[in-house]
């Protein structure tokens, strides 16, 4: 593990996107930042800028309107990066499985590294999900991962 990889493990910056969630998981992600769970002790910071982020936390089943926004955010994040799908509906569509506007999970749009179960996912589970993701991130080389080019081509097509 070189110095850059080591530094990355010590302070993962997190970007959170709500892709049509009910808010339950989102307030639990915010709870992670607060004194009781305090993910900042692991060096994790919640940022608003995708270019600064290493970890993308996505909640919600993804609908037809925010699909493009989610893809866009994922594209803007620099490699290496990990995607954590938080909550049952982000993992599989969950209770929204038969809703006409839902795509049924984050992995229908972008590649997902860790699935965090729970409705709503508890802060402890979310923290564990991020840490599992970091173990994956540690093994990643600092170059574009497979699948990224395809996602880009697809979104270019959608744009047209």
């Amino acid at each position: 593990m070189n110095l850059i990889q080591k530094a990355r493990m010590k302070s993962p910056w997190v970007l959170h996107f709500n892709a049509g969630s009910c808010n339950g998981c989102d307030i639990e992600i915010l709870s992670c930042l607060t004194p009781v769970y305090d993910i900042e002790r692991f060096g994790a910071v919640n940022v608003g800028n995708p270019k600064h982020a290493d970890v993308l936390l996505v909640t919600g089943p993804v609908n037809r309107r925010n699909e493009r926004v989610l893809r866009n955010l994922y594209e803007q994040m620099l490699d290496p990066k990990i995607v954590v799908a938080v909550g049952t509906c982000a993992s599989s569509g969950g209770v929204f499985h038969n809703c006409y506007n839902c795509l049924g999970g984050v992995d229908k749009v972008i590649p997902v590294d860790v699935y965090v179960p729970g409705c709503a996912a508890k802060p402890e589970t979310i923290i564990e999900g991020v840490i599992l993701g970091l173990e994956k991130l540690a093994k990643m080389p600092a170059k574009a991962r497979p699948g990224r080019q395809e996602a880009k081509a697809e979104s270019a097509e959608a744009e047209r």
Binding site: N18, G20, N63, N66, N98, C99, C102
Partner: peptide, 14 residues
């Protein structure tokens, strides 16, 4: 429309 899921319709299906 970013969070529209169609719950009213799903309420008729369940």
């Amino acid at each position: 429309g970013y969070v529209h899921r169609g719950i009213e319709k799903a309420g008729e299906l369940n």
